[in-house]
């Protein structure tokens, strides 16, 4: 299910760590904000990164440049995303960085979809490219 949080488009999704057979949340889904200014795939708070045990597999270090120009260190591991109401699983780099308080969907994940926003009717549609 996708829609708006206020005027911001958002998805509901589940994050999986398939190699360790864990997922977050264990029931239902979490809200994720669509951030077209974020070049990555998915960014999550460290509590979610740990809950899905992505910190237990070998991770990579990367850098995220935030809006004010600061360069923050992030921790990256590959995870799998399932969006509510969309068929299929989508694999990509999931990262976490200090101070992140919400789940962000970036353009690398969005590039898998035909993603349409209609602010007149407050409708969001998401369909896989293939």
């Amino acid at each position: 299910m996708s829609g708006f949080v206020g005027l911001v488009p958002a998805f509901r999704l589940r994050l999986r760590n398939i190699p360790l057979k864990t997922e977050y949340p264990s029931n239902g889904s979490i809200e994720a904000i669509v951030d077209t200014g974020y070049e990555g795939f998915l960014a999550v708070p460290s509590s979610i990164f740990r809950a899905v045990r992505l910190d237990e597999i070998v991770t990579r270090q990367a850098v995220v440049e935030v809006a004010d120009g600061r360069r923050l260190q992030s921790e990256v591991a590959y995870g799998t995303v399932e969006l509510d109401g969309v068929k299929g699983e989508f694999d990509g780099p999931v990262e976490t960085l200090a101070g992140l308080g919400e789940v962000l969907v970036g353009v690398r994940l969005l590039s898998e979809f035909r993603f349409t926003l209609d602010y007149c009717t407050r409708a969001v549609s998401v369909n896989p490219c293939r």
Partner: peptide, 20 residues
């Protein structure tokens, strides 16, 4: 899976931007 490094054929950029 804890003993291996999992990587994609799509290279991970050294840095990504976020925000306006």
């Amino acid at each position: 899976p804890r003993d291996v490094l999992i990587e994609s054929s799509i290279p991970l950029p050294a840095s990504t931007k976020t925000g306006l």
